[in-house]
Design a protein around this nucleic acid. Sequence first.
DNA 1: TTGCCTGCAAACACTTTGCAGTAGG
DNA 2: CCTACTGCAAAGTGTTTGCAGGCAA
Lengths: 133, 133
Amino acid sequence: MKSKGLRITPQRDQVTEIALQQEDHFEIQFLINETQRIYPKISPATVYRTVSTLCEAGLLSETLQSNTGVTLYEVHHSAEHHDHIVCMDCGKIVEFHDEQMEEAQQAVTRKLSFEQVRHKHVIYARCGLLKRK
Amino acid sequence: MKSKGLRITPQRDQVTEIALQQEDHFEIQFLINETQRIYPKISPATVYRTVSTLCEAGLLSETLQSNTGVTLYEVHHSAEHHDHIVCMDCGKIVEFHDEQMEEAQQAVTRKLSFEQVRHKHVIYARCGLLKRK
DNA sequence: TTGCCTGCAAACACTTTGCAGTAGG
DNA sequence: CCTACTGCAAAGTGTTTGCAGGCAA
């Protein structure tokens, strides 16, 4: 898998395993904490380096900013693309996919003579929990 | 205009004037440089403070990240909302507005029981300049 | 053995904050 | 006169980098 000239080390193993276990979006700090629980002497620098390696390898992707502005990562499911709704009140993140919207994007991009590479589409909304209180 | 308990000072005047002159997206560092050209002893902290004041006042908005990841601001035209295409090759930024897409967003958000507040929709694309070379 | 990988600490870029002095209204 | 605003420098954040030693292959 990562046998593309990359060495397999206990540190990378540990970080990779924890990262890939996550079903949700997570921040680097979480990964650092979790890894240090098991492997106390790992350095944050190594986690950063490993995460960017995993991103390049296509196993993770840096998806979005949380409602507080922190960078979040998620396991990259090559399957299908999705976008995000972030709740500004409780921070909850919901994924969605809308084919019609994707097509509209392609249309706009082409109309302006661009070739779309990727996009970042985040809707900031309120789930209503606060209002009900 | 900013007579909402806010004081008018030469520093704020200068920063505001330069900021509002910009037709394009700009980064804070640009604003700091430009202001210091005219008003050399202004402090970066003041520019930061002024920019956030202007954002709260609705005159500026923090719109997006450039292709290199820097935060960009733009003068806020209350008129109509638009989204952005950022060229990953040359950094060019094009604005677009697509009513159909906006409606699709509302539909998705409502379907998931959210109330949309705002959204950030950035398409990263290539303008093709590099390819032609 | 080779050189990629690690830990550590320092460097970094960007932004915020505490404080004492200044000046707007 | 009062207190918001400013400059300065220090402190924060989040992330990257240089280096010497260590270990996978």
